[in-house]
Amino acid sequence: MKRIEKLERLAAQQAAKKQTIPQAHVTPLHSGKGILELRSRNTTLSIGGRAKLSVIYNSASVGGGSNNGDVFLFPGAIPLDDSGEDGQLTFSARDTRLWFKTRTPTDYGNLNTLLEIDFWGASGNERVGNSHSPRLRHAYIEWGNFTMGQTFTTFMNVSAFPETNTLLAPNMIMVRQPLIRWTKPFKRGNFQIALEQPESTLTDTTGARITPDDDRLPDIASKLSLYGDWGQASLSGLLREIRSDGASVSDEAFGGAIHAGGRIKTFGRDNLRFGLSYGNALGRYVALNGFNAGSIDSQGRISLHTISNGHLAYQHWWNESLRSSFAYSQTQSDNDLSIVPVNKKLSSYHLNLLWSPLSAVTLGLEYIHAMRTLENGLEGELDRFHFAASYNF
């Protein structure tokens, strides 16, 4: 009788576990186990990251004192009319990263966390130490169908990113920020909706950027993602309030944007990656904040800017370890602000050759041609050669 009672208790416990809330089945940022995995009674801790060296030659210097722009390609900082230095060689290991993941089973599904840092914080000098402070990239909790913390905005599609030596092709949708997101999985995809951190960026009458810091409503982002043997695609929507509360005048404007992106399989391991965006609330979400969400006049009245954006990239695999990508990206504002020196159009071409002699090692050489046009007609161009060596551990 004791044995029968024990078996009945075990059967009841197994039945209770089958009734727990399912996980959201969202593709993780880091699918590997990392270099180290530690287990306690209920929790597994994984540690991993990457070491990366970049050697970059720019046709003109765009970095200033910290050399940020000479490594990280800010499209809005491309020199105009040959105003930068002729030629700039830069070595950098700042894109090295370190991450920590935990996984804990619970009665309501797995509780997962991710903390990731890189070294794009405050810069040291290039004379002796070349030190750089750690910077928070991701820090979030996943439990059941909820994600809470800082990570990529729901509005973007990571799978649509081209594989490039640069951190990303510059004229794309990319923001990391704190958010609360709910995910509903289904057989061939999922639906997500999130409340995300707001931040209004505006252009004043002189062309300077201002951030009023008067936000009172969260950005609302949603995304429908579909998966299959053909690849992956998504359709996203974004709603925002852009607000300024001045000393005498308070004004706000509501805007929205849509984004479609994906990665489509073609022949063998080849694939086509794309993204298209349009709306009057894109602002800081596109081109690394190369554009603002709107402008504010001398009376404090806000006007939103309509922006269109797109990228297209094709990746070809020469063999199991050698591949190339060709990518083009462009962002353009449809507003006439010719009286102030703000960005009108940003675009870039990328062509690379990447080799992975080991699964965790990648060596790559990339050529980039980037262009920038202001509303007042000024233009600038930048040519970049980028060699990178990285090891994922």
Rank of each mutant, 00 (worst) to 15 (best):
A247S: 10
T203Y: 01
Q330H: 06
N112A: 10
G377M: 04
L365W: 06
S295L: 10
F74V: 09
A233R: 05
D86P: 14
D336Y: 02
P178M: 13
I368F: 08
A208V: 09
S356H: 08
R9E: 15
N289H: 00
R188T: 09
Y227W: 04
A287V: 08
R384P: 05
W355Q: 13
E320Y: 13
F387V: 08
A253H: 08
I56T: 02
S59P: 15
N343L: 02
T20S: 11
V286Q: 05
L115I: 10
T151I: 06
P178F: 08
A313E: 03
G189D: 02
S295T: 14
G275S: 13
F291E: 14
S92Y: 01
F291R: 00
L374C: 09
E163Q: 09
G149E: 07
R284L: 14
V158E: 15
Q332M: 05
S329R: 02
W182E: 03
G48R: 00
F74G: 06
Y367C: 08
S298I: 15
A194H: 02
P75F: 05
H350P: 07
Q19S: 06
D82T: 08
A260C: 12
A221C: 06
S325F: 05
L202E: 04
G144T: 06
G144W: 06
L29W: 12
V128W: 09
P185M: 07
T373N: 10
A11T: 15
K187V: 10
G377Q: 03
L114F: 00
D70K: 05
S234T: 04
R209P: 01
S303G: 11
T104S: 13
Q150Y: 07
S131Q: 07
G124K: 04
F74C: 09
P341D: 07
S66G: 10
D214K: 00
G34Q: 01
A360N: 13
V342T: 02
D82R: 12
I173V: 13
A257Y: 04
L353K: 11
R269C: 03
L365I: 14
L288R: 01
N68Q: 14
L365C: 11
G84D: 08
Q13I: 12
V62L: 09
L238Y: 00
N271K: 09
L322R: 08
G255V: 03
S123D: 06
E5L: 15
N376L: 06
Q19N: 10
S329I: 05
A160T: 03
G283C: 01
T153S: 14
F74M: 14
Y227F: 13
A253E: 15
L10Y: 08
N157F: 04
L115W: 06
G246Y: 11
A12C: 12
L304A: 02
I307R: 01
H138D: 09
V26H: 03
S83G: 12
E8D: 15
F100L: 14
N165C: 12
D245H: 00
L365H: 07
S324K: 02
Q23P: 15
V158L: 14
W318D: 00
I210L: 15
T153C: 07
L304W: 04
N352C: 05
H25S: 11
R103G: 12
L114E: 11
T104I: 04
E126P: 02
N392Y: 11
A169R: 04
P218D: 08
G231D: 01
M156S: 14
S123M: 02
Q14A: 14
L80K: 07
N125E: 13
I173R: 02
A12K: 07
R284M: 10
L239V: 15
I56H: 05
